[in-house]
Amino acid sequence: MKSLKNHISLIIALFTVLASVQIYVAVDRTIAAYETRLKDDYSVIVVSNKAFVPSEFKSMSSMIERSEPISTAQVLDRLKGEMSQKNLDLLRLTLPKFYRIYLNRYPSPKEINNLQRLLQRNPAIERVEGFAQTHDTIYKLMLLFKNVVQVFSIAIAAVTSLLILKEMRLWQFQHAERMSIMALFGAPVWLRSAVLFRLAIVDAIIATIILCLAFYVIDYYGFLITQLKAVGISVQLFNFVNDSLRSLGIALGISVALTFMIVIFPNEED
């Protein structure tokens, strides 16, 4: 019973670290998906007094993915009843050319300003409109959320690692008699501590399995995914193969590294 309690303590601690990492990964993926959506929706409007071919815009900046002209026919059609044909023809001749420019990624506010300045250097371009303000606020909020989650994940990992270290010292104490008897017969440190490594590895595997099941259920039943879809974000919160392998790596890494630490630097009181 006591041994089971010790196992559960380590499994819960490892699960907490893995869950905080997985939450960070999920938030990162959500923001990446939102960035893609913003990028697809986002475009810069350029007003020029001469016609441009798409390759001319592309050569101006590596950020520009493609461009398309905005037709003025619809505006002119609306004015048909209010203006004479002669004035309309004159307006058609003097009306500037409008272009919609799509970018290959969602730019930061600084990048938008740089792009605007770059485009405006061309004497034929009269005006550039970035429209970044609306998207930018939500995007900044999401980045803030991501940073907060990152800070929390690091803090949780640090505190939990200390708890795991304490737990392993307890294990070391529990197995001290066995380890000292083995030492009397010349067992090297790694053989004496094999029991600690075995416990650490088994608990790391159990913690990973629990994490995978928990996130698989969250992903499968989709309570979060439905909410994200409602705001137009489509994202896979848990990639079974990649995420479970990464979690197993982290769990094994932490538990084995901390076991190494207590084996190499035993307590002065031991």
């Binding site: 008699e177 066995r178 008897i181 083995m182 030492a183 009397l184 017969f185 010349g186 090297p188």
Partner: peptide, 24 residues
């Protein structure tokens, strides 16, 4: 050194009054 001591102990048999058996 620890490695020399381990090597030596692998060639010694020790019997204690309190047996020192691994109870698990």
């Amino acid at each position: 050194s620890t490695s020399k001591l381990n090597f030596l102990r692998r060639h010694i048999g020790i019997v204690f009054q309190d047996y020192k058996l691994i109870k698990e």
